[in-house]
Amino acid sequence: EPLWIRPDAPSRCTWQLGRPASESPHHHTAPAKSPKILPDILKKIGDTPMVRINKIGKKFGLKCELLAKCEFFNAGGSVKDRISLRMIEDAERDGTLKPGDTIIEPTSGNTGIGLALAAAVRGYRCIIVMPEKMSSEKVDVLRALGAEIVRTPTNARFDSPESHVGVAWRLKNEIPNSHILDQYRNASNPLAHYDTTADEILQQCDGKLDMLVASVGTGGTITGIARKLKEKCPGCRIIGVDPEGSILAEPEELNQTEQTTYEVEGIGYDFIPTVLDRTVVDKWFKSNDEEAFTFARMLIAQEGLLCGGSAGSTVAVAVKAAQELQEGQRCVVILPDSVRNYMTKFLSDRWMLQKGFLKEEDLTEKKPWWWHLRVQELGLSAPLTVLPTITCGHTIEILREKGFDQAPVVDEAGVILGMVTLGNMLSSLLAGKVQPSDQVGKVIYKQFKQIRLTDTLGRLSHILEMDHFALVVHEQIQYHSTGKSSQRQMVFGVVTAIDLLNFVAAQERDQK
């Protein structure tokens, strides 16, 4: 057995438009009618409502009807409940999964919650491996369901041993009777949507819809739904939504950006999952974080739909894509998950301010006199920076000697690579993860907040409520011999709460 199987392995699926269902090699399930009293909570997966979006479509000038398939009504709160249950049931049916076995899954959280929910009911041990950027709410729900959680670096490539995929496979090879159901490759993922989600949409719309818009992560949702719609409703256009920084969209030119990270969760990847059939997507749109969270908040405030950030991405694209539809036509959007997962993220004004998705003037509360002053007023001194090749031991000596707790790590040209902190280095040394002679590049981390000289002290204040420091950066445009230009970030300084307090105190003292 291989040590790991690539999540982007070539698909062996034989589905073709027009091929009889009787030739399918898979076990198919028909939607079942729910009894009045459910035998367990797993029976509350599927049969989610279709809700008309009344205000947002009109606000953006849509002539067509805009409908939302509300997947956050599933038992675990997301569309991923469907595939989690289906993968477990299919693994039980073919004898792969037996009582007492362990389920391991690399996930952005929602599939993990679905699997942990099913594992709690069915009696399996469950280990979820997820990147650090995923919300604390997801972690809390997983723990409450009895799952064990392993976190991995957000910026690790999918084929790196440190990625959530790599760590999951390492655990599988170490733990007896453990299984990775593997949402990236498992046919049960798109089949769950082909058999149930798509049929529900067709039934709820009486077979009449002209466009379907869905955000894409593993691709199982859009693949399964689109294949069924292509068979039953061939005139329906399928629109895929991919965040900026991901590479799922086609044509490839759409993916060209210097951005590699994004805040919206559960969609987009740096590889093409095996289950994603991009041939059934008629057109791709890219979405960005700001519009995703703005539209998610709009869905909550104006439509009462308590959905997550990827739902915002989907609707932001839908109001663009559906401009081509006329009166009497219908566009369906998939709202994948609930706001429950993001209470401390985009639902929080403070978080939105820190990330730059909300401006101070958007909030009406009274601010102190210094709130709208610029960061450049602080008069920061030149920063202490270190090269990635310097040793951890030497870096600790320098920081202690100069009285700093942290320093930016830059390359020879001064471009920011990340940050090192005294606390992080000492804990890594004590844990045996690094040696004093190791290069400081081994303990770089990139989960820090950046701020510009033109940003306000109010925004800085919000950042420092949650973080010990902020890195002050400025952009530099560099022209190359080819005539092309590129933008790079340079370090201007490091600012802490002490710097802000000293500035405010000094100004008030001078005024007296």
Rank of each mutant, 00 (worst) to 15 (best):
Q354I: 02
I451S: 02
E252V: 10
V275T: 02
S287G: 10
V333G: 02
Q447V: 09
V473N: 14
I300N: 02
V280A: 12
K355W: 07
H474W: 02
V281H: 07
K283A: 09
H462P: 07
V339S: 05
M343V: 09
V494H: 02
Q376T: 10
V491N: 15
A413Q: 13
D467Y: 02
G423F: 11
R509Y: 08
V420M: 15
G414H: 02
T260R: 06
L254P: 02
Q259Y: 02
T279L: 12
P368T: 06
D282H: 02
G379V: 13
A316Y: 14
R330W: 04
N255C: 07
S246T: 05
Q256R: 13
L457A: 02
L276D: 02
I267G: 02
S381L: 13
H474K: 02
A431H: 02
E475I: 12
I396G: 10
S348G: 02
K320Y: 13
E365D: 13
F448R: 07
V434P: 11
G441S: 10
K433I: 06
V415W: 12
Q439T: 14
L464Q: 15
I272S: 07
K345S: 07
K367A: 12
L305Y: 12
D499Y: 02
L353I: 14
K345W: 02
V491T: 02
E253Y: 07
K449F: 09
D455Q: 02
K446Q: 15
K442T: 14
T454A: 04
S287Y: 02
V339W: 12
I239V: 04
S313N: 05
I390W: 10
Q478M: 09
S486F: 11
L353W: 07
E303M: 02
V415L: 12
D499C: 12
E263W: 08
G268F: 02
K442R: 13
K355I: 04
P336T: 06
I334P: 04
F469S: 11
W284F: 04
S427F: 11
E327S: 08
Y479A: 12
W284Y: 02
A497F: 05
K283D: 08
F293R: 05
D349S: 08
R297I: 07
G312C: 15
H480R: 09
Q489N: 02
A382P: 11
V491G: 11
T261Y: 15
V317G: 15
E253P: 02
G309Y: 14
L347T: 02
E252H: 02
M490C: 12
E361Y: 10
V264Y: 02
I390Y: 14
K449E: 14
V241L: 02
K366M: 11
L363P: 13
N288H: 02
K442Y: 11
Q478I: 10
L430M: 09
L429T: 07
A292K: 02
T260S: 11
K355V: 02
A505P: 02
N255R: 06
I238N: 04
R452D: 09
A322L: 05
G493I: 11
F285I: 15
G441W: 02
H462K: 13
S338Y: 06
L426W: 07
Y445M: 05
S481T: 13
L254K: 02
F271W: 06
T279W: 12
L417E: 08
K359V: 09
L430D: 06
S437G: 14
K366T: 14
Q489M: 13
T454L: 08
T395Y: 11
V491F: 14
Y479I: 11
S313Y: 02
Q326T: 10
H372N: 11
F503R: 14
Q406G: 14
Q450N: 15
V491S: 02
N424Y: 04
L464Y: 08
K367E: 11
I247F: 02
F357L: 08
K484F: 13
G418F: 09
D499V: 02
S437M: 14
A292Q: 02
T391D: 02
Q435T: 15
L325W: 02
V386I: 13
L457H: 02
I334S: 04
V332I: 10
D270R: 02
L248V: 04
V440P: 10
A470S: 13
A413I: 09
N424F: 15
V420R: 02
L422M: 15
D438V: 12
K449R: 11
E263L: 08
I416Q: 02
K283N: 11
E324V: 13
L417F: 12
K367R: 12
R459T: 14
T261W: 11
T389I: 14
D455I: 13
F271E: 02
G240T: 02
K345F: 02
G483P: 15
L363F: 10
R459F: 11
G266Y: 04
N288W: 11
S486K: 14
R452Q: 02
